[in-house]
Simulated assay, not measured.
Amino acid sequence: MTFEEMKAHLIKRILQQQLVTATISQPRMKSNEVKRIKLKPLMLKNSYHIQIEYQYERILKHENIQLTEFPAKLETIFEDYRQAHVDFIDEKVQVQLSKKNKVLWKSDQSSIPKQVNLAHNRKKNYLLSDDQPYSFLIRLGVQTEDGKVKKQKYDKFKQINRFIEFIDDALSYLPKNRQVRILDFGSGKSYLTFALYHYLKIEKGLDIRVTGLDLKKEVIEECSRIAQDLGYDQLEFLVGDINDYNEESAVDMVVTLHACDVATDMALARAVKWGASVILSVPCCQHELNRQLNTPSLDIMLQHGLIRERFAALATDSIRAEILSLVGYEAQLLEFIDMENTPKNILIRAYRTGKKANVEQRANYDAFLNLLHATPFLQTELKEYL
């Protein structure tokens, strides 16, 4: 059986709604963060779908795809994986692919048809359970006293859990033999700061010291009271600006949430200079590049204010991630929360590797900046590292 014949057989059976379950594994690239993919059929709004479960090292993500759109998705999946175990109603299939897509195929026929469960399990497995009381969530008004998430706060609860997923993914990059130093610039009402402290200190038992920094005195005073009441003795909140904070010479993790315009770049630059192992940054508004854009070849797009603003925001975050890559970080742009909740949903995640950028990577970066006729603030801040 050829590679194309193998895919055609699987797709045909799936389109016939014969799938019971499937597991696809063995990523072709070690860098692939999704270690395993599971497939199962389900009914959504009276329509047959295939649910795709992406299994990372510590978290799961789900995507539901209509049956007619699934063949193209399966084609893409087999570009990245080499093994599949597929259960159909009357057949069990095992597939092993070589690096050059030579197919090792095994099929076992069954005389007793299997049952297909098309029910949709809507309960999501959160790292923080949605039916367990947490003192900080109760105090912050996200949960009731008995641990139920308040209806009007459920989006906030999902955002907190999404943030905790990123924190959990970063655990292996944090020191194990000493206190972990964490700074949160622009902490605001500090939902995520408290969540970070709870997860790392209470649930994971790490020795940490966390500082939340914000310009709003009243907010800082309230957060300080809550931390004291909860007994979070290694969590402090200070009034201050990113530029004025000079209390540290080295930091392990830097978090910056919704710091406007170049305030995000200031925080990223400070993180790099401190040698932070982990950077988590959710930018807010980006105006600097918008003002600099001078690219006649893109005028068809940029003549429209809305498109210009969105392009500038996406380009700014792409540049930030690339600069972090150039100075020794593994940087990614990830979805923080669903686009339906806010368009400002990009998170920059960077892990310090110390890997040096190659000549081609720097040339590609310079070419992009030349196209835009721009000089990013972060580039200027980190010029001695580039």
Rank of each mutant, 00 (worst) to 15 (best):
I89P: 02
Y191V: 05
Q94V: 12
L19G: 10
F368Y: 09
C285R: 01
K383W: 02
A357E: 10
Q303T: 14
R352N: 09
A170K: 06
P113S: 06
D229L: 07
D366A: 10
P283R: 00
P113I: 05
L298I: 08
H304D: 13
K40C: 04
E330F: 00
A367N: 04
I52H: 11
A374K: 05
L171P: 06
S25N: 10
N161W: 04
I52V: 15
A269E: 03
L213P: 01
N161H: 08
L333N: 02
A170N: 01
F166L: 14
Q94N: 15
S47W: 01
P296I: 11
Q83L: 10
L386R: 12
Y54F: 15
K114V: 00
K158L: 13
F78C: 07
I59E: 10
R82K: 15
Q152H: 12
S135L: 12
E330N: 11
L196K: 09
V282T: 02
L298P: 06
K99D: 14
T193E: 03
M29C: 05
D90H: 09
D299Q: 14
V359I: 12
R122K: 14
K92P: 02
K204N: 03
S111G: 04
K73A: 04
V272P: 03
A367C: 04
Y154I: 11
M29G: 04
Y329R: 05
Y385P: 00
G305W: 08
R181L: 15
K7S: 08
V180T: 13
E145P: 08
K151A: 13
E330M: 00
N64F: 07
A263V: 06
V103S: 06
L378D: 01
E381I: 02
L334G: 02
I65G: 06
Y173T: 02
N294D: 14
L10K: 03
P133G: 00
Y197N: 01
E247H: 14
V95W: 09
L298N: 07
D214L: 03
A367G: 01
R181D: 09
G205D: 09
Q26D: 12
E218A: 15
L128I: 10
E4R: 05
